[in-house]
Design a binder for these strands. Structure first.
Lengths: 331, 331
DNA sequence: TTGTAAGCGTTATCAC
DNA sequence: GTGATAACGCTTACAA
């Protein structure tokens, strides 16, 4: 306990100045490559800086030379294949503006969203995120911090939003299946993850095509591949007449593939499958997965643009991200 | 041009103070929830702050209350399935230390690494990255900035490094194939991406098992699924006797699957396949891909730990990340 | 309870 | 060329 020696006060310009025998201002000139300085002095200062292992304080610099913008980004799970494209879109759009991106993850605990927002608020100028906590909760955490929510409907007027045209996508999917002659179409929904619009969209679309939403045609699954497999097995058991399923997302569709293999069912012959999200992995599997595809890169870019708007003091906006039904081999 | 109105000077504590009719110190107390303040005053100040849309300056705060640590993270491509786990590992380990993570991507242009390092240096206290530029180049860009390199051999003594036990992994893979009776084993390598050790490791391992590395048994591919497919097609055409291939990574192995399907070849019956990296997608395909698996999360965590060491002024260290041969269905 | 003064590490301004 | 001196916006003594 006697060896305290904690937090060795950081090396500052003045320390370097003392060592080099000049004023701290001269050190600043040397460090920043300003012209008006004797080359010899410069060298001496730079040497001193190196010897002392001097690193400028980003805080002091930021204070005196404003302009650096940092964007916070919150996702729920970096490893979920839905997010990498989104993240890439955010990073690229941010970079185009000269912004930096602070990334953080709730690790699938949406309860942590307020905490992460508060933490980010200390270092970021605005935050964009794929957030599922209620608007009011988020608003409380955000305080005045500009916040953009991706992927769901938003009501809080202060928030920017990038919403998804779920209805159009689901309508296209169901329409396609109907046109191919399917009548008994099931859906594998998710429990609760803050995206409550997919199921009603499915029901609406079925109705629009004069198809019955019969008992047991909609089941719920955990949002994992195995969850999808279990749900499909249950669905097929309860309703062997079903010839096509629409899943909440592609991950669940992957589960359907897994279960189908176990059940010796052929996709799409015994059962057609259409997912949602358009994950790249869908192209890699056999048969390639048909899906209601989202341009996740673009979602990220739109969110950054919206953040820029909020940062400029403009009123919040809601963008609607279009979707596209991509038919590959599974339906 | 008359509507200048540029950069509306930010709202400061003093502005809020003026509006609330108190000193800026009182505002600070209210904002930070310090006890000694009249509730009524407090409310008035908070109202004023809200009306003015006041947000504290993170720079000023950082200056006066040091301790916040920001870690820069550089990857080459967020969408490459190799990275999400790595990123998650870095984020989690950083969070455990109360650090924040600034993420950036070279977008597969390793030439951009120095530039990104310099940019990050302005906002981060240390940088970890999956970097392939030469040590000297990186050292020049980093200046004194603590830097940790993941995934390759590093010589610069100032850098921390998380290296991969490539030789052990490749030896295990080749050994496994040899034990299964394969003698004509091919390798699909990559062109140049700064990981030059996989091929010599393969040659060494073949030699160790008394297997011949014959002409045309090693080909190169672009690091894409289609690149792998093309390479495998070429390999199989030139050397139809080959019964097993080891690929530079799993992405190329996916290409082998694709080409095999086109060529009506069965995996593993007509040709066994072992990849490298152990990507999660390997479990999802049919047959599941055998691979020399890396614990990418752990790699990220180790890098963060090393960054902490450097930040504490301790000398740089090289960690060796163990690998594990995971046999699934493809070999 | 509230205000005044000092200082965090840097850059900008202006003398010398 | 170089060095005082004054900001930048905030928090922490300390005084009132």
């Amino acid at each position: 306990m006697s060896e305290q020696q904690r937090a060795p006060r950081r090396v500052t310009l003045k320390d370097v100045a003392k060592r080099a025998g000049v004023s701290h201002q001269t050190v600043s000139r040397a460090i920043n490559d300003k012209g008006e300085i004797d080359p010899e002095t410069r060298r001496r200062v730079l040497d001193a800086a190196r010897e002392l292992n001097y690193r400028p304080s980003r805080f002091a610099r930021g204070l005196v030379r404003p302009g650096a913008t940092t964007l916070g980004l919150i996702v729920s799970d970096v490893e979920n294949p839905f997010f990498p494209e989104l993240i890439a879109g955010v990073i690229e759009a941010a970079e185009e503006r000269g912004w930096q991106v602070l990334i953080s993850s709730t690790q699938n605990h949406s309860g942590r969203e307020p905490e992460l927002i508060r933490t980010l608020a200390a270092q970021a100028d605005a935050v964009v995120g794929y957030l599922s906590a209620p608007d009011a909760t988020l608003a409380a955490a955000a305080g005045g911090l500009p916040l953009v929510i991706m992927g769901r409907v938003v009501h809080e007027p202060a928030f920017g939003a990038i919403e998804v045209d779920t209805h159009a996508g689901v309508r296209a999917a169901v329409g396609y299946l109907a046109a191919r002659g399917h009548r008994a179409i099931g859906m594998i929904d998710c429990g609760d993850d803050g995206q409550p619009d997919r199921r009603p969209a499915f029901v609406t679309a079925m109705t629009e095509h004069d198809l019955p939403v019969t008992a047991g045609a909609i089941t719920e699954a955990d949002l994992t591949v195995e969850g999808g497999a279990a749900a499909f097995t249950a669905l097929r058991t309860a309703r062997p007449d079903i010839t096509a399923v629409f899943t909440f997302n592609d991950m669940l569709a992957l589960g359907v593939y897994r279960a189908a293999r176990r059940l010796h069912l052929s996709i799409p012959d015994d059962c057609a499958v259409i997912g949602f999200d358009g994950l790249p992995i869908g192209e890699l599997i056999d048969p390639p997965l048909s899906s209601v595809a989202l341009d996740k890169r673009r979602m990220g870019a739109l969110a950054v643009a919206e953040a820029a708007r909020l940062l400029a003091g403009e009123p919040a906006t809601r963008a609607l991200l279009p979707v596209e039904l991509v038919i590959r081999g599974s339906a």
